[in-house]
Amino acid sequence: MRTAFIQELIRQARTHPRIFLVVGDLGYSVVEPFASEFPDRFLNAGVAEQNMTSLAAGLASEGWHVFTYSIANFPTLRCLEQIRNDVCYHRLPVTVVAVGAGLAYGNLGFSHHGIHDIAALRPLPNLTLLSPADPGEAAEAVQWLAENPGPSYLRLGKAGEKTLHTVQGSSLGPIRVSKPASAGPASIAFAATGSVLSVALEAAERLAAQGQPVTVFSCSRLKPADREAFAELWKYPRIVTFEEHVLAGGFGSLLRELAPDGIRMRSLIVPETLTSVVGSQEYLRTQAGLTVDAAIRALESFSASPTTR
């Protein structure tokens, strides 16, 4: 995803002369092509995220569209107030880019688990929050941001994510059908944000083989979001959500805030207690219960307890 990001940013910078990239001493073997093509529109602010974010806001106040770039929690939580006050409140065109969101940097430990960012940023005014699932969605997000500069957050995986579906143009909406149900009409939807969409797709595949149709949605825009924006989803009375984030304030929590009465949900999330051990993204997903098996169990639990939500 970060390769798709930087390639698309370079492409957009060629036609948008006010795009500027500021990095927090990160991006080795990623950002160099941008820096060499646009030396006057690139800055390494050093390991100093608060300064990076406020100076980006300053640049933005003079007409630049600034992308700040770092990993995991450093460009978000470390400088949350700079994002809130300087960028969002002043409605300035700064796009905060975090690489390695979720559990992508699993074995780097707690400091590098990006599992609180959605909750932290979603309440901020004027902010657009994009959480693409694959390289195509990441490129689409960058195109959209270049056309629509404003306070924004781009939540990326790391490198090497597979392409999960075809994305055309910059028709960015809150949700898209990633995989229609094998034999409709389905009454169950899987809704995922970020690269964990791959787990939802795999689970749907397995269920289809068992004769259970499920529609899979990819939700890459988490803000702005209102009940209307997710209208497609509300056609399904039972929804399972997937995210590499804690429940509180995350994607499943967002859908619970918006869902009309009568819709039942299960959420596969990262528990707050997953903090003592390390492992690959794969391993930590298993520990967290972000797996195909867990998705199928979540479905079964709908029938087991018909009244709980």
Binding site: N107, G109, F110, S276, V278
Partner: peptide, 27 residues
Amino acid sequence: YGQDGSRLMAHISHKVPGVEFSTGSLG
């Protein structure tokens, strides 16, 4: 170190005997 299930996180962890404080975010 750094393997699935290990307490030896790839940034220092206070879950390891002798380590006072977890870091990984600089400063």
